[in-house]
Write a protein that binds this DNA or RNA. Structure first.
Lengths: 237, 237
DNA sequence: GAGTGGTCTAGACCACCTG
DNA sequence: AGGTGGTCTAGACCACTCG
């Protein structure tokens, strides 16, 4: 299991981008410069950079250089867009409140995804949150996290009001993938009230299953969105 | 606008795969063999093959060769799922009909995405299609394709009833990315009729922008989905 | 015009697979 | 052992950007 020279170079640059030594918009050293520093030929440097382009760390411009450009991450997952944003790009103010304190509960019966025995036994941490964009309530989100090796989750608040940030910082857990099933449904009266719309108004209903860096840990969400004023945006690649 | 040697090689192989000269599981000629045939060096051949790996046409095995392997389609862009499928995995029968013959039209005023001058000048090829799952009409899709270097598009039918297959086979165009904006809207009476539901029923409305391997060519769609019986599924990674 | 990335040549040695 | 893809060297010329 050798480490190749292009991997060394690639890892060095990746580290420098992730630790902020190179920042978004910065130019990397030129290919010739990197050849000299690492004492390799240009095709080795180019192979390393090709990988970084592919992984979305940089883009290259002929005649200009290699530019640090951290790809808009997989979080097209949860971004909102006002109608006007389709043209412009002004920022939205996003806020999340917890409708109840996180608690540990048994899984609901007939859960929307089949669960394995370990998940069923351990119960789930349940979050009940409402998200606002520009002070309009737009998303009601119920989240269930299998209570597996997440000691102390209920002991403190969410870091930055964010579940994913909390999982990253307290448990070194990354969300690696998302599967979602999307429908349009009529609002039931309760949900309509919370999302500030009328009963039977069309709402987006999304079931989400997040895969994480811990293979056996999936996170489940069910969310209702009022898309009257805002789109939900997804970007793949 | 030169054509590079690696592109020639790439296109030749792509064509031979798409037309069935090379079939799934076949071994391509070895890199050295291709060097000899095309009178280029190995790094040119490898650059060509790297592209084919990236586009999902082949996989490579050290010591073995390059194997034709057409990647399972670009994921959940357009997959449906019945409620029962959340558990099982029985196949749905999918059918698409064209509500009108493809035509070349001017772009609608106030188009939902801003267009550049070249797109505006060239007009667009317009498709108006209705998709069925298990004989239920579930998706009404309007597609606009800038009429740029797509000679003969209207001359024949879609290959396999599929726009993407047509673009791939006739123009070597790959869809590389999708951006979508999703809302829930009440059905207007016309659309409701076509999707076999009632006026003001909640429908999914999706604006899609597809990026392709030809950088300046984007494809635009607006689609309405009746998600009464079927989900829309997305999978990222 | 100087510097950048894009393409390409003509070699070399290695790791891996198969007969 | 012979052939395959994987890595790498040491050059060359071109197209593009920018001061």
């Amino acid at each position: 299991m050798d480490i190749h020279q292009y991997q060394v170079l690639q890892n060095d640059i990746k580290r420098d981008i992730l630790t902020g030594i190179f920042r978004e918009g910065d130019l990397l050293p030129s290919e010739n410069e990197l050849c000299a520093r690492y004492n390799v030929t240009r095709s080795t440097v180019r192979k390393a950079l090709d990988g970084l382009v592919n992984d979305g760390y940089i883009i290259k411009k002929q005649g200009k250089g290699s530019i640090v450009y951290i790809k808009r991450n997989s979080l097209g997952l949860l971004s909102f867009k006002g109608f006007s944003d389709v043209l412009g790009d002004d920022k939205r103010k996003i806020r999340t409140i917890q409708l109840q304190e996180p608690i540990i509960i048994k899984w609901p019966k007939n859960y929307f995804y089949p669960l394995n025995d370990q998940e069923l036994e351990s119960g789930s941490i349940f979050l009940n949150r409402l998200r606002f964009v520009d002070d309009n309530p737009v998303m009601l989100e119920h989240t269930w996290i299998p209570n597996i090796a997440l000691e102390g989750f209920l002991d403190g608040p969410l870091v930055n009001d964010s579940l994913f940030t909390t999982l990253r910082q307290k448990y070194q857990l990354e969300v690696t993938n998302v599967f979602q099933d999307i429908r349009a449904v009529p609002a039931d009266p309760n949900v309509a009230g919370m999302l500030n719309t009328y009963p039977s108004a069309p709402l987006l209903h999304v079931y989400r299953r997040y895969a994480t860096s811990r293979k056996e840990l999936m996170i489940y969400s069910s969310l209702y969105c009022n898309t009257d004023k805002y789109f939900i945006s997804n970007e793949f690649d």
